[in-house]
Design a protein around this nucleic acid. Structure first.
Length: 463
DNA sequence: TAGCTCGTTGGACAA
DNA sequence: TTTGTCCAACGAGCT
């Protein structure tokens, strides 16, 4: 009797999971998740991601149990634990869905070679990107560095395959599993996850509900509403996509076939966001050090400032004295998520007004975002800093006052996340108010710091 | 080939 | 209050 180990990684779902689907057609399955915190080069998950992972695994384990099979949890080095599990359960094959980061690819390649040598059937599948990074290239054969031509080239390719249904039946033996609680993925002392619990329900079922809800109720007007941080105008699918509770194929096909009232423009803009995820991953595929090294090496000479500890702390926890910055950073700290427009603004503030190295911000987002994604996070911080592939022009410096006037005119978002501002009438510029109500004084001079950044960037250009 | 167009997300200032 | 222009070239990508 054929028995396949399905090794799940960033694909914690049952539907549209080609590895699981094919294994179930083949015979019995053992579904496994391996927590590998020991292989060299693996970046440890941030705190918010660990919280999400715990609940996502818990949700998946429950769903598999309902179908009669367990989720087998193991921890340790993949090179040792996967062969051990294969021997232990008597499997003759192992299937997984491909992943694209450098260390992970190498681990998978080494395992494939050694397990194949040992006589196992090893098979990998395309599941987490609609366009494989090596499939999309410019006319001259090089990887794309600019989003628009990249996404145009993707759209000109064959349409992504239709998503697979969940396997109709899952059978398999009961294999001992480690205890999820013993992994201590959840914060205990202190338990800072209250805001995450209020905000999110990790797991595949919720991801499907969110997608349906988005396409039924929210996507109409998306192109405009997604700009407004105080409006529930986005899909909020990002952490679900990050952990693979839903696949881009599912999102893409639902958006194409959605008989909604949305305009073509709304659907195009939404689909494009899925395209950005694909773009960031192909950047990371071709530039493995995207999270740690400037994509444009001339930025190695940029004069980043070493921030005072209390200034950096003011940024991290939302006490800079700039309402939009503080609202965003507090939303992040509380919920593990921040509206994208505000992400750009707080990023620009850290990198350009405070002149702090983008990697400091990237690491903070990595620790605090529930959707912290190795490719998206790194590529977008580099975009903000101007050191990235398809970077923002250096003179593009977000002004937090102008941004909140434009995208949160009545200050609802600002007052929601910064209670000190509720009694302040000049909510966009509280320092001009007669009674700023205990709200922090501005950390810096916006115009002066802007000029300083502009000249530093100009110096870099001149070499 | 060499030329041409274009580039997710802005701000300041003038008219 | 709104709209247009400039900021500074430059490299990507296409034809």
């Amino acid at each position: 009797m054929a028995l396949t180990v399905v090794w799940l990684r960033d694909d914690l779902r049952i539907a549209d999971n080609p590895a699981l689907h094919t294994a179930a057609e083949r015979g019995d399955v053992v579904v496994c998740y391996l927590l590998d915190e020991v292989s060299a080069g693996i970046r440890p998950l941030g705190g918010a991601s660990r919280w999400w992972l715990h609940h996502s695994l818990s949700s998946l384990a429950g769903a598999l149990e309902e179908r009669g099979i367990p989720l087998v949890l193991r921890s340790g080095q993949a090179e040792e634990e996967i062969p051990r599990l294969l021997t232990e359960c008597g499997a003759d094959a192992v299937f997984w869905n491909r992943r694209y980061a450098f260390t992970e690819r190498n681990i998978d390649a080494l395992l494939t070679a050694s397990l194949t040598d040992d006589g196992y059937q090893v098979q990998d599948f395309q599941a987490n990107l609609m366009f494989e990074p090596w499939q999309v290239a410019t006319g001259s054969g090089s990887p794309y560095k600019v989003f628009t031509p990249f996404w145009r080239a993707c759209r000109n390719r064959q349409a992504p395959r239709a998503p697979l249904d969940a396997p109709p039946e899952l059978r398999g033996p009961r294999i001992p599993s480690e205890d999820l609680d013993a992994w201590q993925l959840l914060p205990s002392s202190p338990d800072w996850a209250g805001g995450l619990r209020e905000t999110w329900t990790p797991g595949e079922p919720t991801a499907q509900v969110l997608l349906e809800h988005f396409l039924t109720d929210t996507v109409d007007g998306y192109a405009q509403a997604r700009q407004l941080p105080n409006v529930e105008g986005t899909s909020r699918l990002s952490p679900h996509l990050r952990f693979g509770e839903i696949s881009p194929f599912q999102v893409w096909h639902s958006a194409q076939s959605g008989s909604t009232s949305a305009t073509a423009d709304d659907l195009t803009v939404f689909t494009q966001e899925i395209g950005w995820r694909e773009f960031c991953w192909q950047l990371l595929y071709h530039q493995p050090q995207l999270a740690t090294e400037n994509y444009r090496s001339e930025f190695n000479a940029f004069p980043w400032q070493q921030p005072e500890a209390e200034d950096l702390d003011a940024w991290r926890h939302g006490h800079t004295g700039f309402p939009l910055i503080d609202a965003g950073m507090r939303q992040l700290w509380h919920t593990g998520w921040m509206h994208n427009r505000v992400r750009m603004t707080v990023g620009s503030f850290l990198v350009k007004n405070m002149m702090v190295d983008w990697r400091v911000g990237e690491q903070w987002f990595w620790d605090t975002l529930v959707d912290a994604d190795p490719a998206n996070n790194a590529a977008n911080w580099q975009w903000v800093a101007g050191s990235g592939a398809d970077a923002a022009p250096y003179f593009r410096i977000f002004n937090p006052v102008t941004q909140s006037r434009k995208f949160d005119p009545d200050g609802g978002y600002l007052r929601r996340w910064v209670p000190e501002l509720r009694s302040v009438s000049n909510v966009h510029e509280p320092w001009k108010d007669d009674s700023p109500g205990g709200y922090a004084a501005p950390l810096l001079d916006l115009l002066a710091s802007r000029d300083q950044a502009l000249s530093a960037y100009q110096d870099l250009r001149r070499g």
